[in-house]
Nucleic acid binder design. Structure first.
Length: 505
RNA sequence: GCCCCCAUCGUCUAGCCUGGCCCAGGACAUCAGCUUUUCAUGCUGAAGACAGGGGUUCGAAUCCCCUUGGGGGUACCA
């Protein structure tokens, strides 16, 4: 191990940071932290046409959100700048002078050596590529590419310039490594230690890509028998939608529109998607770390947090085989993490999601009713969005709750038995009305108990009709907590509405 | 096609390097039971894998070879 370990994450800013990149970043970060070294960032923007500043900004933001801090904050090198500084041209001149590179058309090609090259990989072991197996490759693009260095030349030079000692990257680069080693040798640069980590795929083995969103939206549209026009909206015409449904494009905007219209969640691919869906950054780090790395001894998710990784991560325990991204497992980790959160932290995290409906009923994070709301849903939530999703009935007007008394569960709650739920509900209403506004939930709970005991009824006989009345469904958190959050006024109003609707059906 | 990598339950994996403690352990998912005023949670239990074939060895998930399967690369993308 060198005196000072230096790792780097070097994304090309051509889109959003996606989970594969996030894991690469995480491993580089963890390895550097473990060895008290440095974790650096670099922007690989040699592809002038595809690189954007917006993408660069979003990637840095996503890394920050994940909690992966880098040590060259404020001084993140960009290859386009290095090009301007002339450091690539110097190397090219040197290679041409030594006859290790030659011009072809207006590009410059590196001459591969005629000996075998062995990569000493920390996770895969020794990989030898025979002489003649790798073709001479372009190191500087022609005029069309702005005479920019290619990725191969730029990485080699920049890694050396930044003093990078360990390169942890995806296995898609394994075949590039002999090229890079050859370049390092020709340029008299040291060869860093390499570690190629396995790739991440979808559960069905396909590549995880943005197109999955379009595919999901299309499939859902087909299932719902969505005819072309429906969701058209801002900046999107019926023709656009037809084109999208006919697979003429994979426009994410249209996919998102359809998803909203159909009320479905598109598969998360990029880090930002997971944040948007309400996953905690720590949860994503844990899941990603365990997909490809494992501390052994049956150590599982509850232990493998960022701090643990920065103290224990190593290359020896990286797996060699590709993994499949399992959303159920991530969700399970997320549910566990949410359960373990201190209440204030949970409240802040839910509030930060900026759900517009939240401020309709709650003042701020310190609102005791909001805290009750978060507490009521913590055990039921897989993501931070779940409280608002599952508790949507809290946020509508009392008159806007709709009742469908025809479904099996609703029938059971309201119509079955003698007396039936609706009758019990009507009988119980005066008792509720007589209760004080404060501590309404627990008072109501006591009243329900008494009411049922007197009549030798199972508590559910009354609790279920109340659930139905206040939520329009048979599922809510425990009655006392729910009524506490909802308050006396809304509870009474909803019960009245419900009884009216029931009698009018 | 050629080159490279990989191969344990459906999934992520422990065990493999340093063969015997492994008729293979954990987690997620699944199923069943208990808890329960709904939904969850929680608890208990069940089912579930060494890709196939050859070797080596007293003994192989562990070492070697072949086959098969999966993946990556083969760009003036990174």
């Amino acid at each position: 191990m060198p005196d000072q370990v230096v790792t780097r994450f070097a994304p090309s800013p051509t889109g959003a940071l996606h989970v594969g990149g996030a894991r690469t970043a995480l491993f580089n970060w963890a390895f550097a932290r473990k060895h008290g070294g440095k974790f650096l960032l670099r922007i690989e923007d040699t592809d002038l046409a595809r690189s954007t500043e917006a993408s660069e900004r979003s990637m840095l933001e996503d890394l920050k959100w994940l909690g992966l801090d880098w040590d060259n904050e404020g001084d993140v090198p960009r290859q386009s700048q290095h090009k301007a500084d002339g450091i690539y041209d110097q190397a090219i001149d040197k290679l041409i002078a030594a006859d290790r590179a030659y011009e072809e058309d207006d590009a410059i090609r590196f001459r591969m050596p005629d000996h075998d090259i062995t990569v000493h990989d920390e996770v895969l072991g020794e990989v030898t590529v025979k002489a003649g197996q790798t073709e001479d490759f372009i190191i500087r693009k022609g005029e069309a590419g702005g005479f920019m260095p290619t990725f191969h030349l730029a990485v080699v030079i920049d890694d050396a310039a930044m003093g990078v000692t360990h390169i942890i990257r995806g296995q898609e680069h394994l075949n590039n490594t002999p090229k890079h080693i050859a370049l390092q040798q020709a340029l008299d640069l040291p060869t860093p230690t390499y570690a190629h980590i396995p790739l991440i795929f979808n559960a069905d083995g396909s590549k995880m890509s943005k197109r999955d969103k379009a595919k999901t939206a299309r499939a859902a549209a087909k299932d719902a028998n969505l005819q072309p026009p429906p969701p058209s909206g801002e900046g999107c015409s019926p023709e656009d939608i037809t084109a999208f449904l006919n697979k003429e494009n994979d426009d994410i905007t249209i996919a998102t529109l359809i998803a909203q219209h159909l009320n479905l969640t598109l598969p998360e691919i990029e880090v930002a998607d997971f944040r948007e869906s309400g996953y905690l950054p720590e949860t994503l780090c844990t899941y990603l770390a365990l997909l490809g790395w494992n501390p052994g001894d049956d150590v599982e998710e509850q232990t493998v947090k960022r701090d643990y990784l920065s103290a224990n991560f190593d290359l020896e325990r990286c797996g060699k085989s590709n993994g499949k991204f399992d959303r159920d497992k991530l969700a399970a980790f997320s549910a566990d993490a949410i359960k373990a959160l201190p209440l204030e932290v949970l409240c802040d995290a839910v509030w930060m999601l900026n759900e517009p409906t939240l401020s309709l009923r709650f003042a701020n994070t310190n609102d005791l009713f909001f805290q009750g709301f978060c507490e009521a849903y913590r055990e039921r939530s897989k993501t931070l969005r779940d409280p608002v999703k599952q508790g949507a009935f809290f946020f509508v007007d009392d008159g806007a709750i709709t009742y469908d008394f025809g479904t099996k569960n609703m029938k059971k709650a309201m119509s079955k038995g003698d007396p039936n739920g609706a009758t019990l509900l009507a009988k119980f209403l005066p008792t509720l009305e007589a209760l004080p506004k404060d501590e309404f939930g627990s008072a109501a709970h006591d009243a329900i108990n008494t009411f049922c005991e007197q009549r030798e009824l199972n508590i559910g006989k009354l609790a279920q009709p109340i659930r139905v009345a206040i939520s329009g469904s048979t599922v809510t958190p425990p009655i006392d907590a729910t009524l506490d959050i909802l308050g006396k006024q809304s509870t009474i109003a909803r019960i009245n509405n419900c009884l009216t609707a029931f009698n009018n059906q």
